[in-house]
Design a protein around this nucleic acid. Structure first.
Lengths: 246, 246
DNA sequence: GAGTGGTCTAGACCACCAA
DNA sequence: TGGTGGTCTAGACCACTCA
């Protein structure tokens, strides 16, 4: 599959974008695994019959999207949720004082159900498709902090169990990656403030109607395919959600 | 001031980073104004005695930081908060149904006070420095939605009045830019859920202890100098805060 | 058609890393 | 020392905009 340098416009696509697509296809096909190095820029340039600079620009963009990671002198690597420090990449909740903390994870509910309405739509599933539904309590340094409600399609995650979630100590994305070869690339979050209802206040050990930060998240794998819906209810008296605007 | 191509390392700095600094200095000095075009890449390459590709890389990064804006065929422009569509660049709150809405702005309080404790620290001011303090109510499509508490140093904003804030219909950053030549480049936000107290519930017209999304924001101008502290309390039954994670 | 940003090349050389 | 990513160049050509 050789990229074509199509000139004199009608529907012009830069070469480096075509390279980007080819690289992404290799990633999806599993040619290179998470944490591994991909071939050097020179090798890829030779393979695709383009200059090193063009490969470089393609990799630059994939690196900006956190799909690849450059390491000077060592190579370019496939991003993973498995490494220390990169774990919990999507967790924006930090303590007011910036302390490091112990994270624990307790399953509250685990069941197989059918996708309905909004959630089916957000996961791009037909209503009635089988889904796995889990509720868990996250504990920060011994204190209950987040009540998570997670829904994933049963098909791609065939064979998942409550135990598998427990084992990785709450790092779901790491588990998805190693157990199901599903890599989450990006996520969209919607935040609001809500009042704790009876069930939630009991589980989190807080008064009824306490204010909670509600974080609804849809995570996407390659090709912008939604693969997980999640609703986190967070106690935010000692913690807050950090965000940088540019 | 010619950039030096320093080779054989000790404390190596890429040429394009030096160019980036020079461009930023020109922006601070007011050589080019918001909304205006900067010189072409060729011109800048000639001025700085480097190749076009090197200037390009410097501009690329400034464009990624939303400090410059590229427009193919037209030129590269200094970013501004004044344009339609770019206005409210930092407002992440959107309606659940994505409707366009009318925004109104009503001043509740406007006074000159002294910076204290945490706020002085976050604005990088000595305790006791004069600051302007404003509270205002933002109304979306006729419904009270956000109660803003804003604090800015009095010095750089000498001559500010409640009227000036009202006039621009709530677009503070646009006003800062045109009236005080202060351009906000980026901001950090910390979100939590809180319960409405007596004053807040009265002003927003909601029951006492209703859950509110609290958005604390510090905005920075060139050189990472903090210039505004803001606390927004938002009703989030019909709206939510959107965020994209990569 | 002239001017601007955008793409692509081929090649040189540098900084960083590991063996 | 050799391989990798990172920088820089000089030049060609393309796509887009506007007069």
């Amino acid at each position: 599959m050789t990229p074509t340098k199509q000139h004199t416009s009608p529907s012009f696509r830069p070469l480096y974008e075509q390279i980007k697509v080819l690289l992404t296809q290799s990633l999806i096909a599993g040619e290179w695994h998470p944490g591994e190095a991909i071939p050097s820029e020179h090798e890829l340039a030779a393979r695709f019959k383009v200059s090193q600079g063009t490969v470089r620009k393609a990799i630059d963009e994939l690196a900006a999207e956190n799909i690849l990671i450059r390491r000077q002198g060592k190579g370019t690597f496939v991003a993973t949720h498995n490494e220390e420090g990169i774990k919990l990449r999507f967790l924006r909740l930090t303590a007011a004082d910036g302390q490091k903390e112990l994270l624990e994870n307790q399953m509250v509910d685990f069941s197989k159900t059918k996708a309905q309405g909004d959630i089916a739509r957000m996961l791009d599933l037909k209503a009635g498709t089988s889904v796995i539904e889990a509720k868990r309590l996250l504990t920060f340094s011994g204190r209950p902090m987040i009540l998570d409600h997670i829904i994933i399609p049963a098909g791609p995650f065939k064979g998942i169990t409550a135990t598998k979630i427990q084992e990785k100590n709450g790092s779901m994305y790491s588990m998805y990656e190693t157990e199901f070869k599903i890599r989450m690339i990006r996520a969209e979050e919607r935040l609001k403030a809500v009042a704790a209802d009876e069930e939630v206040s009991r589980l989190l050990g807080i008064p009824l109607h306490s204010p909670l930060l509600s974080i609804e998240r849809v995570s996407y794998t390659y090709g912008d395919v939604p693969m997980e819906w999640r609703l986190g209810l967070c106690i935010t008296d000692t913690h807050h959600y950090m965000n940088e605007l540019e």
